[in-house]
Design a protein around this nucleic acid. Structure first.
Length: 486
RNA sequence: GGCCCUGUCGUCCAGCGGUUAGGACAUAGCCCUCUCAAGGCUAAGACACGGGUUCGAGUCCCGUCAGGGUCACCA
């Protein structure tokens, strides 16, 4: 039997990076073993349902290249793939459990349960429900239910003993049954809880490997008990570590952006996202840190998966994104800037190849491109004083000298036989010598004249791209500004 | 607090009984250099603590401590 894995997100908001992390492991394992990877939407909580959330999750998976074999939008042999469409199935299984005495109806009110929860907890005892309704006579219970009295269905957890299961990552885990609450299986609105639905669906959908986050470990005994009560064989469990905030708490959007689509909007490449997630809690056999999704899929091994919770490090993530940007052929980068919506509308096509080439080693996020090339798009306003070179705020030349220097530059530029970076640089360097300026000083003035900023892409290559006419016009503008200063 | 999971540089990852404990990000310095980057070189920086087992422990066992998770008619 080939492995079947699944991602079971609940459509309650934006696609979470932690979900994608778990998805990556599920995907890699399934793809590597020739198995299937499916998506099941866990929408059993009507109060938390968010319209459009499902679509965003699927969009995020697609963006990252984590393709799936079966899911809500593409169907499959064991559908439907939304739990809200499977209510009858859960009901039937709950009835089976009821009939076998593995579950019972609970008529306790929400108020009563709330009070119970406020009672001080006892050592070694589960904090939850006091099992009052467990003592109800089944016939009486059935009569009340038939009469329409609201109720839930609860799992009758063994009062003694312990439940154990093997975790593929952590070995055998044992939890005393006394610590396990009589979990609600079917809510009073007829919807199943996660615990009921996940077991029934994983079984019915043929899921062989349950790969999910560490936070589920302590509720796994409930699931194991359910598998046993229904007479089913256990799947293989793998609980991967939770990604952490810098303070080591569970990654949360209060402390870190967690929406994958946010990273997309910031200009992170999907290649970098899966690469970064793939190096959290997992290492490549040869210690390589930069790898493709395909390479990850090939090399993925449970033996190389860590059980410690990695801290999400934005600095390293950005570095990695920069690496991916730099490794991309210039034409591909330009195409990507366009397709991801980071190409400024006003940037002339003729400038694009050159501008992209010059920006490539300077980008950590695609989003930074627009700002970096803003002066290519238009002549930006700037403080005239920027034209005067200074050292720690102290001007090295007067406004008049700067004005003169600009005029000399203009003449030299206009007379230059060729218009290439290779020709521009020596021309300006010798002019600096003539003027008695350090060439870096002259370049500063020229840089501001051309790019309207003190920090820019390399000056002469930028000028080559802009062309003689545009550069002369910008120098003219600078001369005017410098004159006003003098 | 009970229970469960985890514990190698600030961070991510190597190490799977014998290593000068290695690499990456970040940090600092130097080089390159028209600014900013990128790139190159160098530096600093870790086995939580205490007991065992063993000729020998970062690696195995136990305890302590620390961090995290979980204790819903949420997933």
């Amino acid at each position: 039997m080939t492995p079947r894995t699944r991602l079971a997100p609940s459509p309650t908001g934006e696609p979470h990076i932690g979900n994608m992390y778990v998805a990556l492991f599920n995907w890699a394992f399934a793809r590597q073993t020739g198995g299937q990877f499916l998506i099941r939407i866990e929408d059993t909580d009507r109060s938390r349902f968010v319209e459009g959330a499902e679509a965003m999750i699927l969009e995020a998976l697609q963006w990252l290249g984590l393709d799936y074999d079966e899911g809500p939008d593409r169907g499959g042999p064991v559908g439907p793939y939304r739990q809200s469409q499977r209510l009858e199935i859960y009901r039937e299984h709950a009835d089976r459990l009821l009939a076998a005495g593995h579950a019972y109806r609970c008529f306790c009110t929400a108020e009563r349960l709330k009070e119970l929860r406020q009672r001080p907890p006892q050592a070694g005892q589960a904090a939850g429900y006091d099992r009052l309704c467990r003592a109800l006579d089944p016939a009486e219970s059935a009569r009340r239910a038939a009469a329409g009295e609201p109720h839930t269905v609860r799992l009758a957890v063994p009062l003694e003993g312990e439940t154990r299961f093997a975790d593929g990552l952590r070995g055998e885990i044992t939890i005393a049954n006394a610590m396990v609450d009589d979990q609600v299986l079917i809510k009073s609105d007829g919807f199943p809880t996660y615990h009921m639905a996940v077991v029934v669906d994983d079984r019915l959908m043929g899921v062989t490997h349950v790969i999910r986050a560490e936070e589920w470990i302590t509720s796994t005994p409930k699931h194991v008990l359910l598998y046993q009560a229904l007479g089913w064989e256990l799947p293989q469990f793998y609980h991967v570590s939770l990604i952490r905030n810098p303070d080591r708490s569970k990654l949360s959007k209060r402390k870190n952006p967690t929406n994958v689509l946010w990273y997309r909007r910031e200009g992170f490449l999907p290649e970098a996202v899966v690469n970064y997630l793939g190096m959290l809690g997992h290492s490549m056999p040869d210690q390589r840190e930069i790898f493709t999704l395909a390479e990850f899929r090939e090399a993925f091994s449970w033996q190389r998966v860590n059980t410690t919770g990695p801290v999400f490090d934005m600095d390293k993530f950005e570095w990695l994104n920069g690496e991916w940007i730099r490794r991309m052929p210039v034409e591909d980068l330009a195409a990507r800037l366009r397709s991801e919506g980071f190409m400024p509308a006003g940037l002339p096509d003729a400038y694009v190849p050159g501008a992209v080439k010059l920006m490539q080693p300077r980008l950590k996020r695609l989003k930074e491109f627009a700002d970096g090339v803003a002066f290519f798009v238009s002549r930006l306003p700037y403080e005239p004083a920027l034209l005067i070179p200074d050292k720690k705020g102290k001007p090295l030349h007067t406004a008049a000298e700067t004005c003169d220097a600009l005029a000399r530059m203009r003449a030299a530029l206009a007379a230059l036989p060729g218009w290439t970076a290779a020709a521009l640089e020596p021309g300006m360097r010798s002019l600096a010598a003539d003027l008695g300026w350090k060439h870096a000083e002259l370049y500063t003035t020229l840089r501001v004249a051309i790019t309207c900023r003190r920090i820019s892409t390399p000056l002469f290559e930028t000028m080559e791209i802009l062309g003689r006419e545009e550069c002369l016009a910008r120098v003219d503008g600078a001369i005017e500004k410098a004159q006003a200063l003098a």
